[in-house]
Simulated scan of single mutants.
Amino acid sequence: MTRTGGTEEQKTDVKVSLIGGHRLKGETLHERTLTASLIGGADVDLTDIDIPDGAELRITKLSLIGGVSIRVRPEVRVEVHGIRLGGVKDDGPSGPGGPTVRVDAWGLLGGVSVTRG
C-alpha cells in the first residue's frame, strides 16, 4: 500500500475487464482501488502489507456476477458496504480502531468472503 501525506491527493487504482476477475496484491495498491467487470470476481491479498493503525484502505467492486475474496492479517477490521445478492463471511474483529479495509461491493450475484491469516 502506498501511503500519501495528508496534503497530497490520494491515488486510485482502476482495474477493468469485461469477462474475468482480478487478482490484486497489497504492495501494488494505493489507498483506493476500483475493480469493475461484467462477469468475474476480485481476489485481493493484503496479508503481506502493513496497514498503519487508523488508516483506511478502500476497495470498490462493481460487477453483475462476481464476488470478492479478501485475505487480511488477523488484526485488520473489514467493513463491507454495498448492495448484492450474497452474504458476507467474516469472523474477524468488529470493534473500532486499528487498521481498516472498507469493501464496497455492488452487483447482482456474489458475496464477500474474508479470510484471515
Rank of each mutant, 00 (worst) to 15 (best):
T7M: 12
D91L: 05
T47Q: 11
L109D: 02
V14L: 05
I39Y: 13
G67H: 02
P74R: 08
P93M: 00
R77T: 01
E75G: 02
P99S: 13
G6N: 01
T33H: 06
V80L: 01
H22C: 00
G87V: 12
A42Y: 03
L24Q: 10
R71N: 14
I59Y: 03
I39W: 07
A55V: 03
T100W: 05
R116S: 04
I59E: 01
R32Y: 02
G67A: 09
L24S: 08
V88Y: 02
D91M: 01
K15E: 06
L64Q: 03
E75S: 03
L62E: 04
L108W: 13
D104S: 06
A105D: 15
L108I: 11
G95D: 11
V72I: 11
G40V: 04
G86I: 12
G111Y: 07
V88R: 10
A36K: 12
A42C: 12
S69G: 10
R84C: 15
D43T: 11
L34R: 08
G82N: 04
R73S: 11
R102K: 13
S17N: 15
E31F: 01
P74M: 08
H30S: 08
H22I: 02
V101W: 10
S17Y: 01
S17K: 15
A55F: 15
D53H: 04
K61Y: 13
I19S: 14
L29P: 06
D45H: 12
G41E: 06
G92E: 13
V112Y: 02
H81M: 09
I49N: 07
V88L: 14
G41T: 10
E75F: 03
G117W: 08
G97L: 03
G5S: 14
S94C: 02
P52D: 05
G111L: 08
T7G: 05
E31S: 10
G86N: 07
V112E: 06
S94V: 13
S69Q: 15
I49M: 04
E27L: 12
T47Y: 05
G107F: 10
K89P: 00
R32E: 05
V76N: 09
L18P: 00
D13H: 01
V16A: 05
D104H: 11
G21R: 05
V114E: 01
R32I: 04
G86K: 09
G110D: 02
R102E: 13
L85H: 04
E8T: 13
Q10M: 04
V101N: 00
R84G: 12
T2I: 12
I65D: 06
R71F: 08
E79I: 08
L57Q: 08
D48L: 07
A36V: 15
P96V: 00
G82R: 01
D104F: 10
G66P: 09
T33E: 02
V78L: 11
M1C: 00
G41A: 09
D50I: 10
D13V: 01
L62K: 11
L18Y: 00
G40E: 11
E27T: 07
I83N: 08
R73D: 15
V44C: 07
T7N: 07
P99T: 00
E56W: 03
R77G: 04
G5V: 00
E9P: 11
G107P: 05
L57D: 03
K11W: 01
G87M: 07
Q10H: 13
K89S: 12
V76I: 15
E8M: 09
